[in-house]
Structure formats: structure tokens, C-alpha cells
């Protein structure tokens, strides 16, 4: 375990409350189960540019439906940069990147009237920094034990968090971090039908945490894809709400238009026979497509740094 700096912040968030906290590059945010079995919703923003915020779908597609210790939490496209490294995570902590965040309408439709919910809790928390309810985004849900079935149906099962369990998030950039005690858990398994407090701590950066940040920056920053607002074709943030068409606007699509060029390949009889067998098993609709898919799959598996592995082809006997 890394050695952290001094404890800077130590607060208890009462049920159905949240707090927007600056957590700077190299600092560690610790979220602790004060009593256990409480779901925590988490939002985060780049402290210097709130338009860069935690990207649930980016994080999901990079890692899995659930994140775990050692995973990177990314900002949303268009930025797609590491925001946090999950340094520590209790084994009882199941995370969720599917549920988004609960909102008042969910409960009103179920007949509960105005019920506590994470959308409103987050909005109340980030208001301290002049952010609006529209700035709340889907949450990284911590201690939210969700499952899904083969039809894609999604449901929550018993919260497995225990008193004292914690999750440590290392900030890779200066962030406004917003943990909130989920407000849905008194009417579901999200928090086992009761609402409990959580404890939140922030530890100062240390040489070790900063070294880890630098290592992540070396490995994961510097892609052309990491665009900054000064590179945006439209970079000014709209200040009015009405949408109006700009008749002078000309879109610039990436690599547009897509064009193909044929590469002429000669196969001998044996090679051709194998290619045709692959057509027969549905690998491609003709020999040309079979060859192209094979080349791209081979490249993906053998030359792309984050991929690998065989495709697992089976020809009919």
C-alpha cells in the first residue's frame, strides 16, 4: 500500500447528503462505510474545467461493468483522460456502472411521492460551486450490488458493505469530487432498506502518490485523442438555453470521406481452399472479406498494445 500524505479532511456525510470536495492531483479520497451496507454515488469534475467530468461509459468500456482495485476511472469523451486510479477497494465493495443515478421520478412513479434521490442530492452538493442540476452526471456507484441477466435486465441485490470497509481513489488531476449517500436504499436492496451515513477523508499528496500519478500520466496521457477545448471547432460554452442553427457551420468529420483501395492478393489452391472454408462457416461473406477480417483480427490481437488473444475459430468438420 502506498504511503499517503497527512489527513486533510475527515467528515461524516449523514444519510441523503453529499459534499463537493476539491481533491487535488496526488491526493487520495477515501470513502468509508461508517456503519456498513450503504450505497455511495460518486460524481467528479475537473476542478479547472467543469465540462470535463467523470465518464461512466468510458470507464465501463475501458474496464468492465464493474470497476475494481487497480482500474482507472476516466473522464467522459471528448476528453477521455484518467481522473482517478482505484488504489484500494474492500473485497465487499461491488461497484456499478450501469445504474446511473436514482432520481425523484423513479420513486414518485412507485407511489412514494417526493423521495430522496441521488440526482437531487448531487445537485444540492455541487450547487456550492455554482453548478446546476443539469451538471449532475451518471454516477460511479460504490457498494451497489447490481446484477444483470442474459436479456439485459438489470436489478439490485443485497448490499455487501461492512462497517469500516473503504475505497481509496487517487486523483490523477485536480478534481471536484462529490460523494453522496444514496437516497434510494430505504426502499430497496441498494442499501438493504435503510439509510446510513458514510465517512469521507482526503489525504494530502505524498512522494509515493505523486510518483504513481506521474507513472499514469506517462503511460496514459499524450494521445492525439486527448483534445483540449482550444482544439475544439466550437469551444465557446453556450450561455443561453435556446438552440439555433448556425447556417455558416461546416462540420469537419474525422477521416471523412472513408475511401477504400483494393490490394490484389494471389492465393494458391490450398490457401484459397481454407479461405473458402471460412466463408462457409460465416467468417466473411466472400474470400476478400475473409482476408480483410483475418488481417485486421491478427493485427488487433498481435500488435495493439491493449488487446491480444486468439479469435477461437472453428471450422465445420
Amino acid at each position: 500500500m502506498l504511503e499517503y500524505g497527512a489527513l486533510k479532511t475527515d467528515i461524516v456525510l449523514q444519510p441523503v447528503s453529499g459534499k463537493a470536495l476539491p481533491v487535488l492531483r496526488g491526493e487520495v479520497l477515501r470513502i468509508i462505510q461508517e456503519e456498513g451496507e450503504q450505497c455511495v454515488d460518486f460524481n467528479a469534475f475537473n476542478l479547472h474545467d467543469y465540462k470535463e467530468y467523470l465518464g461512466v461509459s468510458n470507464t465501463r468500456s475501458r474496464n468492465a461493468f464493474r470497476v475494481k482495485k487497480g482500474d482507472l476511472v476516466l473522464s467522459a469523451a471528448s476528453r477521455d483522460r484518467p481522473m482517478f486510479l482505484i488504489l484500494e477497494m474492500a473485497e465487499t465493495c461491488r461497484t456499478d456502472l450501469l445504474g446511473g443515478r436514482c432520481r425523484a421520478g423513479l420513486f414518485e412513479r412507485r407511489g412514494y411521492g417526493l423521495h430522496t434521490n441521488c440526482q437531487d442530492t448531487m445537485a444540492a452538493s455541487i450547487g456550492e460551486y455554482d453548478l446546476t442540476p443539469d451538471d449532475v452526471h451518471d454516477s460511479l456507484n460504490v457498494w451497489m450490488n447490481t446484477e444483470w441477466d442474459s436479456l439485459g435486465r438489470y436489478f439490485t441485490i443485497r448490499n455487501s458493505g461492512r462497517k469500516g470497509d473503504y475505497v481509496d481513489l487517487l486523483a490523477i488531476m485536480d478534481t471536484l469530487s462529490v460523494p453522496a449517500t444514496c437516497g434510494s436504499g430505504d426502499v430497496g436492496w441498494t442499501s438493504n432498506f435503510s439509510l446510513k451515513p458514510i465517512r469521507v477523508q482526503v489525504y494530502a499528496a505524498s512522494q509515493e502518490t505523486l510518483a504513481r500519478v506521474e507513472e499514469i500520466e506517462r503511460r496514459h496521457l499524450g494521445l492525439k485523442a486527448h483534445k483540449t477545448p482550444d482544439q475544439f471547432k466550437v469551444s465557446k460554452i453556450k450561455t443561453d438555453r435556446e438552440l439555433r442553427r448556425n447556417p455558416n457551420y461546416v462540420p469537419e468529420f474525422v477521416n471523412y470521406p472513408i475511401t477504400s483501395k483494393p490490394i490484389r492478393v494471389t492465393l494458391n489452391g490450398e490457401q484459397l481452399k481454407k479461405a473458402k472454408q471460412l466463408v462457409e462457416v460465416g467468417f466473411g461473406k466472400d474470400v476478400a472479406e475473409v482476408i480483410r477480417i483475418a488481417v485486421m483480427l491478427w493485427y488487433t490481437a498481435n500488435r495493439e498494445p491493449t488487446r491480444g488473444g486468439r479469435f477461437g475459430l472453428k471450422l465445420s468438420s
Binding site: 483501395k261 483494393p262 474470400v287 476478400a288 500488435r303
Partner: peptide, 21 residues
């Protein structure tokens, strides 16, 4: 394989796939 069994195929690659080549 006999050369008479050979076949020449045009395999299209777009400009993004061509980066790999």
C-alpha cells in the same frame, strides 16, 4: 498446389485499416 489453382482477389482496405498495413 498447382499454379492453375491460384486465384487473385482484390481485397479492399480503407485508409484507416491501411495504417495497420
Amino acid at each position: 498446389a498447382d499454379s492453375k489453382d491460384e486465384e487473385t482477389i482484390d481485397v479492399p482496405f480503407n485508409q484507416q485499416q491501411y495504417v495497420a498495413i
